[in-house]
Structure formats: structure tokens, C-alpha cells
């Protein structure tokens, strides 16, 4: 059984060019897949379809062997939104993290246990009684992630998780993701270094199609491919390339 199985997925608005134009992709359980691509490539749209928020115009979509029904609630699919503000709605962090578990009809005690377990795992116990709105964006990101993890999703979707993080929080997120061995991850990000560190596979999405699919270092070091889709080879890969090519260069000179 695949974690995510999309076949020929198409989505668009009437009269416009399709946002997703026949996307076929499969994810195995436990896989960590980065999704890269220029602005407007269809990354968030793909997520909205996987979560069942939007309905595909055509094509098939299954998550953990079950067809995705638009509008149906699937607690095993968790998504952390790009703008965490959209997600943090309760007066305190504690209530916000309990929000999801309460909705899956757990008992009061079970909810409390979940909250306690999840916040200690993500290390935000000290924030429990604060208002989410007054936290720093790094803290907000962690709270939003914790709120989703408290529902124990098997598929975790992160939309631009590092866009508002300083280096410290970014590092912390990378470590946390590295420790989460059970989850299947889908991460859309412009932070290619982050994708390089956290993912074992990458999809390059552009103009609604999967343009490349493979090992992150391979896909992202292909400068022709990257530039053709409005991206740049990440610095760490360039350095590698320089190291390999520099001596050869010197040889030819000498």
C-alpha cells in the first residue's frame, strides 16, 4: 500500500490554464519527499488536493489505500500551513494543541495526555499558557506543528516550513524532522538547503507537471534543469561541484 498515490491528477479554474496538469506520483510510507518549484508551480494546490480541501477535475488520488473524498476529515493526514496564523486560532497554546484531538472525540484525559506528550516531544512546554498570537514566528511555527502532530498523522505535509524561521529554529526543525521516523513527509519549500537536509527524494514541479523526480542532490545539482524552472543550484552543491572541478581546471591550465 502506498502512502500517497496520485494518477494523472488535474486541477484548474474554469477558463484558466490548469494549475496541475496530469500529475502522477507515488509515495511509499516513511518516504520524505521535498517538492520544489517556482512560485505558482502548483505545490500548495497539490497539498490542497491531498488533504481533500479541493476537488480534482480529473485523475485519481489515494492516501494510504483510501480514495480521498473532498471535504471528508482524515485525521491521518496532517498539514502545517504556510502562514501559521491561519492555523492558530485559540486563546492559549494549550487549547490550540488540544483543538484537533478534541475533534477526534477523545476523552478529556486522553486529550490531556496527547497534549502533554506532544509538547514535550517538540519542546514547547514553556509556551503552553501563552497566547499563540503573541509568540515569535519561530515559536508559532513550532506550535502549529505540534498542534498537527497531536493528531498523530501518518502523512505530514509542511508548506514552506522555514519561510519565517531564524537559523536556530530552522536547525531545531531539521532535527525534529530527522527524529520522526514513522511519518511520511511532503515538504514544499524554496529553502533548497533545507530540502537537501531533510528529504530523501525530491519532485520538481513546474507549470502543473512533475518535471523531475529523484534523489535531491542529483536533481538539484543539474544546473540546466534548475535554471529552466526558475531555480538555482543550492550553494552546498555548487561548492561540491567546485571542489571536483577545480583541480581539473588547474590541470588544464598547467
Amino acid at each position: 500500500m502506498r502512502a500517497v498515490h496520485a494518477s494523472n491528477l488535474t486541477f484548474g479554474y474554469p477558463g484558466g490554464t490548469p494549475v496541475l496538469d496530469g500529475v502522477t506520483v507515488g509515495l511509499d510510507p516513511g518516504e520524505r519527499v521535498g517538492i520544489i518549484g517556482p512560485n505558482g508551480a502548483g505545490k500548495t494546490t497539490l497539498f490542497m488536493l491531498v488533504c481533500g480541501v479541493a476537488e480534482p477535475m480529473s485523475g485519481g488520488l489515494e492516501v494510504f489505500g483510501q480514495r480521498v473524498e473532498t471535504g471528508a476529515f482524515r485525521p491521518e493526514i496532517g498539514m502545517v500551513f504556510h502562514h501559521t496564523n491561519d492555523q492558530l486560532i485559540c486563546p492559549t497554546v494549550r487549547e490550540d494543541i488540544a483543538f484537533g484531538p478534541q475533534n477526534i472525540a477523545l476523552s478529556r484525559q486522553e486529550v490531556e495526555e496527547r497534549v502533554d506528550a506532544t509538547v514535550s516531544a517538540t519542546g514547547i512546554v514553556h509556551l503552553l499558557d501563552r497566547a499563540p498570537h503573541e509568540l515569535s514566528s519561530g515559536e508559532q511555527r513550532l506550535v502549529a506543528l505540534t498542534g498537527v502532530l497531536a493528531m498523530m498523522p501518518r502523512l505530514l505535509i509542511l508548506d514552506e516550513p522555514t519561510s519565517d524561521l531564524d537559523l536556530r529554529y530552522r536547525r531545531r526543525l531539521i532535527q525534529m524532522l530527522a527524529e520522526m521516523k514513522e511519518h511520511t513527509l511532503m515538504i514544499a519549500s524554496h529553502d533548497l538547503e533545507f530540502v537537501l537536509e531533510t528529504c530523501d527524494r525530491v519532485l520538481l514541479l513546474d507549470r502543473g507537471r512533475v518535471q523531475a523526480d529523484g534523489v535531491p542532490a542529483d536533481v538539484m545539482s543539474d544546473s540546466g534543469l534548475m535554471e529552466a524552472h526558475g531555480l538555482e543550484v543550492p550553494h552546498s552543491l555548487m561548492a561540491q561541484w567546485h571542489r571536483h572541478s577545480a583541480p581539473a581546471h588547474a590541470d588544464s591550465d598547467g
Binding site: 490542497m48 488533504c51 480541501v53 471535504g71 476529515f73 485525521p75 493526514i77 496532517g78 498539514m79 500551513f81 502562514h83 496564523n85 491561519d86 492555523q87 486560532i89 483543538f99 484537533g100 478534541q102 475533534n103 477526534i104 498542534g147 498537527v148 493528531m151
Partner: peptide, 16 residues
């Protein structure tokens, strides 16, 4: 848009 995203996020966490 803000309202619609917030409602979507709440729905994804099981809010009816």
C-alpha cells in the same frame, strides 16, 4: 482569503 484559509485549517483538524 484569510478567513477561508483559517476555516480550512480548522476543518483539517476535524472541526465540523
Amino acid at each position: 482569503e484569510d478567513l477561508s484559509r483559517a476555516r480550512t485549517a480548522a476543518r483539517l483538524r476535524g472541526a465540523d
